[in-house]
Nucleic acid binder design. Structure first.
Ligand SMILES: [Mn+2]
Ligand SMILES: [Mn+2]
Ligand SMILES: [Zn+2]
Ligand SMILES: [Zn+2]
Lengths: 146, 146
DNA sequence: TCCACTAGTGATAACGACTATCAATAAATA
DNA sequence: TATTTATTGATAGTCGTTATCACTAGTGGA
């Protein structure tokens, strides 16, 4: 066997991760934005700032960050995936503004309840998506004064 | 008043609806299936039964049936829309089997709770998607005996 | 510091679900 | 039956996302 570096890692969990400029740019942009954005829009924003980052890389890093639990994802009503920088470790949900992407975190008490309902119906391996959208205070006031 | 049943329709809500063989075939197939199916799979099933129905028509009728509230829709974890014949008038949710599409209806107490949480955070026009997937009893037992 | 190795990048093609188009067809109504 | 027009269906197009693959650039060792 050739000198494989790293600790006695189980090869199933192995995931080499190299820190690149692109990944930093993406994380940084997500942090400054604060709210949820689509991959496409993030790509637009980054390129507007003169970084010739490719769209494939944006998708790749976004997916990877999501896998690593460093960012949260949400699927918009029309099927587009949205991302936002978030370091809350536990499982939680959001209310997301349809207009500007601003979000607040919520923790509904449905998690345990769900498991019970599923089990009592013979269902196992239960997963759920609970996504809430609305119009935030800022967006609704600025809409009135239009 | 022309023999139109139901409320005095405002022309904005007017929607002429003609009963075709295709629509009947789709509804029938949905009824016999019982569970959730994608438009693509439904199209496949219908064509396997020798009805040269077009895929565009399947999508059209499915969307229309959903608009009219005659069927329920759910979005699978990978973004595909699923449909099933269901005549429960009120808003409700399902636990759907990832494998065979079998579903049971659930009515979580999150509806009102959600509105309150949203309002207390300044959010209005709140909409939500609450979708639950799992493996039904039948599918999990048949998987064990593989 | 330089090198070898390979993860990561990016232009682009491909994919898949879904919708728009439009000439042809078949319900509805008189 | 004749007229009208909603509906159909083959097909091209849209759009978000992923696969390819030659090239670039982190990384760890010499
Ligand atoms: Mn979060
Ligand atoms: Mn239902
Ligand atoms: Zn907003
Ligand atoms: Zn099942």
């Amino acid at each position: 066997m050739t000198g494989r570096t790293g600790p006695a890692d189980s090869e199933a969990t192995r995931k080499p991760r190299r820190s690149t400029q692109q990944k930093s740019a993406i994380s940084a942009e997500l942090s400054t934005l604060g709210g949820f954005v689509s991959a496409q829009e993030l790509h637009r924003l980054l390129n507007a700032s003169g970084s010739g980052i490719g769209v494939a890389t944006v998708y790749r890093q976004l997916n990877r960050l999501a896998d690593d639990g460093e960012i949260d994802t949400v699927t918009s009503p029309d099927g587009e995936r949205l991302f936002r920088s978030c370091h809350t470790a536990e499982h939680h949900h959001h209310i997301v503004c349809r207009q500007c992407g601003t979000a607040v975190e919520i923790s509904p008490p449905v998690e345990q309840w769900l498991d019970d309902v599923g089990r009592s119906n013979g269902f196992t391996a239960i997963s759920h998506t609970f996504e809430v959208f609305g119009i935030c205070a800022d967006c609704s006031t600025s809409a009135e004064t239009s």
